[in-house]
Amino acid sequence: MIRSIQILILFFSLGVRAQDSIPVKVMYDRFEIQPGKTILFQDDSIRIDVVKFYLTNVVVGGSELSSGLLFDLEKDQNYLLIPISQIDEIQFTLGVDSLTNSNGISGGILDPIHGMYWSWQSGYINFKLEGIHFENGIAEEFNFHIGGFLNGYNCERRIQLQGSSNVSRLELDLYQMLQTLSTDQLKKIMSPGKRAMDLADILADSFFLR
């Protein structure tokens, strides 16, 4: 009996690979964004309240990770568990792929209890950014809910980044994304469509390994 238990322990221990983790941070130009904190934006300021997004189908060192990440600025820590300590290259999808969306509801980080599934129409919200833009003494809310996978407006974006020997974190820099606040009248994008597609393109170019 004891020998059987020893064999089982050995079996399970062989299945576990050494793991490391890489933190994921959200930045505005080189400054880390904190929830509810105001940051200087051009001549005015911005308060970021919500940043949530999915990183899925993550491939590191040629192998796909068993789970992705639902980044949430409210959480103390956001990190990806990776099987190796050094990242030469990382690939991931910003959002939820269309096949998963087509299959309806999923569990774990994709459970709709996390508030990342649209209710008035089908599909996961790939990326959420909410806050307040203080401009010329006027406070205006902004809400960007980027998603959609049907009717020619598929907002999932596949991202590939090259690393180096001293990679310590994965960053999303919202600098370009937030510049749209000063140029666009529209500060609420909460439907799939062309505007959401354009913002998804901006976000896809905003990830960096540092």
Partner: peptide, 16 residues
């Protein structure tokens, strides 16, 4: 035709 899958259907009235 807003909902593409029956498993997502109930979310619409639940949240409305």
């Amino acid at each position: 035709g807003a909902i593409h899958h029956v498993d997502a259907q109930a979310l619409a009235p639940i949240n409305h």
